[in-house]
Amino acid sequence: MNKTIELQDLGYKDYKQTWDYQEQLFKGIVDTKIKNRREDANLQTHNYFLFVEHPHVYTLGKSGDLSNLLLNETQLAEKGATFYKINRGGDITYHGPGQVVGYPILDLENFFTDIHKYLRFLEEMIILTLAEYGLKAERSPGETGVWLDVGTPFARKICAMGVRASRWVTMHGFALNVNANLGYFDNIIPCGIRGKAVTSLNVELGVKEVSTDEVKEKLLKHFATLFQAEFFNKQN
């Protein structure tokens, strides 16, 4: 079992280009697994973890409701945003500057074969990271992602999640609001959940900006511990 994970920070990158790249990596892992089964081979499968920041974009999961997007094509263009229907679970969400977006593309057979556990570990990574900033983040029963003040009238979401898995290979992932422009969430019903607010780490801390590099370091530290994994950067 290969518990090493290749870390790639893609910087500021278009959503569709990143999605296509995810699909390419995903297909490579799946193809290796098919070859292993058909030919009784024992080729090692790779694991990847992509960090990225997207231009303004709204994405709708395969079980989502298009009516949760409150903008038409003209209004999208006016806001400099794009829209895609994609192949992850979940409803509608927003990505944009000031978010730390992470896409783990893993062969879960290298770790454990349990999608529920995988999602809970992603949530736990966020919860542990936010605890380092003095925030008590939690899960909200029946709602994926990570929240603050669950069970109160002030409940607000700070991290959205949506994944796809096939043959125990994952793609898509999480979007943590670090220095996000929360006004863009006003154009959707986030994750199809009415009456729940959205927040960002800098807002919660009462500062103008939080270091995204520092947040990424903390996320990777907790991910490595939870998954008993080791990260490496590919040498060009």
Rank of each mutant, 00 (worst) to 15 (best):
M1R: 09
K3P: 03
D9Q: 13
D9M: 09
G11N: 10
G11F: 13
K13L: 15
K13T: 13
D14M: 09
D14K: 11
D20G: 03
Q24H: 15
I29Q: 07
R38S: 14
E39G: 06
L43P: 02
N47D: 12
N47K: 09
N47L: 15
F49S: 01
V57D: 00
V57A: 02
V57M: 04
T59N: 04
T59F: 07
L60H: 09
G64W: 07
S67N: 15
S67F: 03
N68L: 02
L69P: 00
L71S: 04
N72Y: 08
T74N: 07
Q75F: 01
K79Q: 14
Y84D: 06
K85T: 13
R88S: 10
G89D: 14
D91A: 01
T93A: 09
T93Y: 10
H95Q: 05
P97A: 14
P97W: 06
V101I: 12
V101A: 08
G102K: 11
I105W: 05
I105L: 11
I105Y: 11
I115P: 08
H116I: 14
K117Q: 13
R120N: 14
R120P: 05
L122S: 08
E123S: 05
E123Q: 15
I127C: 00
L128K: 13
A131Q: 13
E132K: 12
G134L: 11
L135P: 00
A137E: 04
R139W: 02
R139I: 01
S140L: 08
W147A: 07
G151R: 06
P153D: 01
K157Y: 02
C159I: 06
C159D: 01
R167A: 10
V169P: 01
T170M: 08
M171N: 06
G173E: 07
G173R: 04
V178H: 06
N179I: 01
L182I: 05
F185K: 06
D186R: 13
I189P: 03
C191W: 01
G195M: 07
G195K: 09
L201P: 00
N202I: 03
V203M: 06
E204Y: 11
L205Y: 09
G206K: 05
G206D: 04
D213M: 04
D213H: 12
K216N: 01
E217N: 12
L220M: 15
L220C: 14
L220W: 12
F227W: 06
Q228I: 04
A229G: 11
E230Q: 15
F232W: 11
N233M: 14
K234G: 15
N236V: 15
